[in-house]
Each structure stands twice: as C-alpha cells, then as structure tokens.
Amino acid sequence: MDLSEITRQAMRVHTLYDELNQARSGRTWSRQDFVLGFVGDVGDLAKLTQAADGVRPAPPGPGLAHELADCLWSVVVIAEQYGIDLEAAFTTTMRQLEASLTGELEQGAAR
C-alpha cells in the first residue's frame, strides 16, 4: 500500500468519524481537536513503548502496532486538513536532513 492509498483509506475513516461525532455530539472535530487527539495517541504510544521495553506494565487495550497505525492515521488526516502534500513534504524534509547530517559527519571526520 502506498501513501496515496493510505491517505484515501484514512480519509474514508475520517468521514465515518465525522458522521459518528455529528450523531453523538452534534458537531464534527475541528483541526485542533484532531491535533489534541494525536497528542493523546502519542501519549498512548509512549506508554506502549515503555511496556515493550519492560519499563512499565502493559496498559489494557490494543497494542503497539495498533497505536502506531493510529498515530499514522492522525498525521495523514492532519496533513490533509492543512492542505499539506505529505509525500512531497516527507521527501523534501528527508533530503534536507540527509544533506545536513552528511555534511556534519563529513566535517566531524575532517577534524
């Protein structure tokens, strides 16, 4: 599955959440609500990675793979809501980081 299919699937689920939230509370989630939900997912992810590393007991509920998928879903939806081409942004950012890190490593080796 490529990023465009992941995005299509994520947005289908987003639409279903909009329908459910509208039915339950009379409103859909704003972009800020999604960001706050993502922060919660990252907190859950942190707890699960600590459990996987033996630092704390595993919390009840879905595991690490599920939470990573939740976080990816949130990132994809937030990118769509802000009109960000996530694939292009990722590619550009990774190229910039690679060039920066390679330059730092080369400078360090020259010392």
Rank of each mutant, 00 (worst) to 15 (best):
Q9F: 00
S100C: 05
S25C: 09
A23G: 15
L72T: 06
R56V: 09
I84C: 14
T15H: 11
P57C: 06
V76S: 08
G40T: 13
G63L: 00
E80Y: 02
F90K: 08
T93H: 06
D70R: 08
C71I: 07
R31Y: 10
G63R: 01
L20R: 11
G103M: 12
A69G: 11
Q96K: 14
L16E: 06
D41C: 08
F34E: 14
L64S: 10
T93I: 07
V13A: 11
V35D: 03
M11S: 00
H14V: 08
Y17D: 10
L105Y: 13
Q32Y: 15
H66C: 01
Y82A: 12
G54F: 03
V75K: 00
L45I: 09
N21T: 01
T49S: 02
R111I: 06
Q81A: 05
D85N: 15
V76H: 09
F38Y: 12
G83N: 13
D33Y: 12
A10E: 05
L20K: 13
G40L: 11
R95Q: 05
A65K: 05
L36M: 13
G54Y: 06
G37F: 11
G43V: 03
V75S: 01
G43A: 13
F90Y: 12
A79T: 06
T49E: 12
Y17C: 06
L68C: 15
W29L: 14
T92M: 00
A65S: 08
E67R: 01
Y82L: 12
E67K: 02
L48Y: 03
A23L: 14
L20W: 07
D85K: 15
P60H: 05
F34H: 15
H14M: 10
R56K: 07
Q22A: 15
T93M: 12
G108S: 14
D85H: 15
T102P: 00
H66M: 01
E80P: 00
M94G: 00
T15W: 07
M11E: 00
C71A: 13
P57N: 08
L68G: 11
M11H: 03
L36K: 11
A69V: 11
T93P: 06
R31M: 07
E67A: 08
L86A: 03
V75G: 02
E87K: 09
L36S: 13
R95T: 04
C71F: 02
G43I: 09
F38P: 02
E87S: 11
G61D: 00
D53N: 01
G26Q: 07
A58C: 05
P62M: 03
S25V: 11
G26E: 09
A58G: 05
D41P: 05
E87M: 07
M1N: 04
A65F: 02
L3G: 01
A89Q: 01
